[in-house]
């Protein structure tokens, strides 16, 4: 008999899991953005080696399953003497994974920016980083908000995979208590609803930002 109320006894555990999921995802998105910007710049730079490295990074991280990447970082790195705690490994894996996607999203944004925008910056004396920070990125981010929001939603959902390396986020909690209580349906339904609130909120924040910034 399906009775969702059984999860209520575990609400504080579930909410802790939700909180963990939320900030793992947030960190992964923010770090991924920094990685994405760097990878994107490297990808279009004038240095062939940098371009090749960036292209390799982007295609491998986008072309392999996150579960594989997670295992590589958590289980393979110790073989060469680098052992990371699960939480750190999880955040690094998610950030690297998201960085590759964000690099491609941002590249599209950079390509649509008229080169006169950069020229005007160069002409009045801004250096390369000032141009990036004050001229290019604000416009590129505005132009790619819908895609960046999609990426955020993907990362929130994909973060459930880090439960496999014993990070106690939402999925892990649901899994644990579904086996101790023998109520998997209820716990996974509850987890699903909580993921949905998170992804819906991300979507609404995105819509709000899009609307606010587009009036300019």
């Amino acid at each position: 008999m399906f009775d969702l109320s059984v999860v209520l006894d575990y609400r504080s555990e579930l909410l802790n899991g939700l909180w963990m999921t939320a900030w793992i995802s947030a960190l992964a998105i923010l770090l991924g953005f920094v990685i994405g910007v760097l990878a994107c710049i490297a990808r279009v730079s004038g240095y062939p080696v940098l371009r090749a490295v960036a292209a390799f990074y982007i295609s491998t991280l986008r072309g392999t399953p996150l579960l594989v990447q997670l295992s590589m970082i958590f289980f393979m790195l110790p073989l060469i003497g680098i052992s990371l705690p699960p939480l750190l490994a999880a955040i690094i894996a998610l950030a690297l994974n998201s960085g590759a996607s964000q690099a491609e999203i941002l590249r599209g944004g950079f390509e649509t920016l008229p080169c006169g925008q950069t020229e005007a910056g160069w002409d009045i004396g801004l250096d390369r980083w000032q141009i990036l920070r004050h001229v290019q990125l604000p416009q590129v981010v505005r132009a790619t908000i819908p895609a960046l929001v999609n990426e955020t939603i993907d990362i929130i959902k994909n973060s459930s995979l880090v439960s496999t390396i014993a990070v106690t986020e939402l999925m892990r909690i649901a899994h644990t208590y579904s086996s101790t209580t023998y109520r998997p349906l209820e716990f996974f339904t509850a987890a699903g609803l909580l993921y949905l609130t998170l992804t819906l909120s991300a979507g609404y924040i995105g819509k709000y930002l899009e609307k606010r910034l587009s009036t300019r």
Partner: peptide
């Protein structure tokens, strides 16, 4: 840029920053 510090360009498309 330093050598050209006293030179500025005005463009056909204005190139103002829209944001």
């Amino acid at each position: 840029q330093k050598d050209l510090a006293n030179v500025v360009m005005v463009f056909q498309q204005f190139n103002l920053w829209p944001h």
